[in-house]
Design a protein around this nucleic acid. Structure first.
Lengths: 115, 115
DNA sequence: GATGTATTAAACCAATTGGTTAAATACAAA
DNA sequence: TTTGTATTTAACCAATTGGTTTAATACATC
């Protein structure tokens, strides 16, 4: 795997981890707080957080015995730009579909005039 | 894993599979053709393609002994919209940074008038 | 210094992943 | 009907993943 983009997508491929990220949209949070919604042991959550941290999707602070987590933007931006190339592709497809529909309409009009 | 979005991100988390998708941006292609750039056995490529197919990132046709692959757009769109929520977040952060810079500038101006 | 809370580490386990080689299948053409 | 080409299946393997439980560590407070 090794590369950053692969690590990002891998980290995003787990619903628990995506839920954690969603929670962090609302602001910084401790591990125990993040664990609340899940029917899962603390070490399991701790591991998920570790994956997010290694993929650089989150950063961590230090406040007494808490290790607050906060969102990081860079890797998500990279993932989004990777997807943008495909967005161009499907938008182009829509354009061609649009052209096609216009062509059909033009034909219909022509036929309309004939009859 | 089970859910569609997880399957999509999981499929995208491998560089070989991303390269295959990139190749398919140029158009439909057979398995052997897709395998060309990789120093990897055919069954390995076949498996990667299977993963992409199960995640619905590609569709396959049938032409004699060839099983041509072509891109599909839906799951990539879903992945992109998932990321869009985070795009809003980092754009908001930029806005706040922008506000902050404006505040600093305003202070500088004020200081400038005083001296 | 003892106690309670937050978090991680260690050891383990079953399932999945990403690769291999060797064999099977499907089709076209000679 | 044999031969060659395209692709998949099967069986295997090592490494990784996502979870567990039990213990260890770090810190604040009493």
């Amino acid at each position: 795997m090794t590369d950053q983009l692969s690590a990002t997508f891998a980290a995003l491929s787990d619903p628990t981890r995506r839920a954690i990220l969603a929670r962090l949209l609302l602001g910084e949070s401790s591990v125990t707080e993040l664990a609340k919604p899940f029917d899962m042991s603390m070490p399991a959550i701790s591991k998920h957080i570790r994956v997010l941290e290694k993929a650089r999707l989150i950063e961590r602070g230090k406040d007494a015995q808490w290790r607050p987590c906060r969102l990081t933007t860079a890797p998500l931006k990279d993932a989004a730009s990777w997807l943008d190339e495909y967005r161009l592709h499907w938008e182009a497809r829509l354009d061609r579909l649009d052209d096609y529909l216009k062509l059909i309409q033009a034909r219909e009009k022509k036929r309309g005039r004939k009859h």
